[in-house]
Design a protein around this nucleic acid. Structure first.
Lengths: 220, 220
DNA sequence: TGGTGAAGGATAGTTGAACTATCCTTGGCG
DNA sequence: CGCCAAGGATAGTTCAACTATCCTTCACCA
């Protein structure tokens, strides 16, 4: 199919597709002549994935490009490609500058969190960006004067683990690495809003239950 | 304290504070003379909250202003102010245009989700924006060719509910509405990245466990 | 009590991201 | 053989989030 049809099929405007091609978010079509290229179903899928990363995942074009570049690079092993793609997905947090006042607090909170998760038996590299994200959020909560919810981690972790196992099983069943990679990115980006939305609805339910007394109905 | 000290205490530059004042994200100080205003601790707290909303919550200045405007408006009841602030917090999803092809899919997925949550006994307004967020994510997953994980909702919901109850209890203990509101916004914005980060670490743990065989150690 | 220097408001300028529009060459097709 | 659209290159636009400048006024100090 040509650009015009790719645009129609994917719902992305022609100028935007050109832009994504330039930025390397979408691989070029196979040139059929000097001024003509042919696109396939994989381009339609890729465009949908890119749009999901940008609109739902709120990723920047640069972030999406970097993640997809690693995912597309056959120089790495399956495990490396999946892991690196995962690591590159936002959000990311940065530690405060070395020797700053906040840095001491940051480091202390980080090791508290790391200890707690190690105590739960979790294995992960201690360079995992998610760890910095955790630290940043907890540090900010502390900075606002709230208790560090590190002791709640046990509950949160217990709740989240079965989900992660189920999702991992879903992704692992893809044998083709391209499929597994797309699934990793898609599930990471698209399941996160699902969890957050469910949490907000649960808050509303708890609130209305206490306020209007639906307590006799099953909570679950 | 004056602007310069407020800047120092909050870690936000003077021009940025001026900008936030103009945009209504921070209430003006009490004018002590025509060209002099006095700021208090509440301004320091507000600035920290605003920075958290913008940097961690990835909210736009306009969104933060709207949320804080409702939270600050004493014309509403405590319940309304908490609920509206919650509803206005991003992310938000928009339904496709009426009578479009995707709209039919959208509506179908939305009512599937609503039914499932009602079956779980959850109470919330069916105008809740989180419901649209759920629909958008599921619809996008379906559009990419994945199964709609509606049947997983039961598991997700069961995992999330105790967290929501614990968080609600934490927020409910603030008697001053200003404190409760700030806590609502802070917990919504700052606990979400914690959950997502834990989920990613859980994925990494599951992955390394299967790959390197840590199966004999406790998973939790 | 007068000079100075910062505070604070108004206004305009800057930067970066994400498109979007224009131009121009070329080649498929009639 | 000629026309018109595809596709690449380039430049322009739009918007958000600051950031810098200017200017008046007043607090503080000598």
């Amino acid at each position: 199919m040509h650009l015009a049809e790719l645009s129609r099929r994917s719902g992305v405007s022609v100028p935007s597709i050109k832009f994504y091609l330039r930025e390397g978010l979408v691989p070029p079509g196979t040139p059929v002549s000097a001024r003509r290229a042919e696109y396939g179903e994989e381009h339609v899928r890729r465009l949908r994935l890119v749009r999901a990363m940008l609109t739902i995942g709120k990723m920047s074009v640069a972030q999406a490009r970097d993640v997809l570049a690693v995912a597309d690079d056959p120089a790495f092993t399956r495990h490396e490609r999946l892991g690196t793609a995962q690591y590159m997905l936002p959000p990311h947090a940065e530690a405060p500058a070395q020797d700053s006042e906040e840095r001491a607090v940051w480091d202390e909170i980080r090791s508290l969190i790391l200890d707690e998760l190690r105590r739960l038996g979790w294995h992960f590299q201690d360079t995992a960006p998610a760890l910095d994200m955790l630290t940043q959020s907890v540090a900010t909560l502390v900075g606002l004067g709230y208790d560090a919810p590190v002791e709640d981690f046990r509950r949160y972790a217990a709740a989240i683990r079965p989900m992660a196992e189920a999702e991992y099983a879903t992704i692992a069943q893809f044998e083709l690495i391209e499929e597994a990679l797309e699934a990793t990115v898609a599930y990471t980006v698209l399941v996160e809003p699902i969890l957050l939305a469910l949490r907000r609805l649960a808050h509303e339910d708890v609130s209305s239950r206490l306020r209007y007394g639906y307590g006799d109905e099953p909570a679950l």
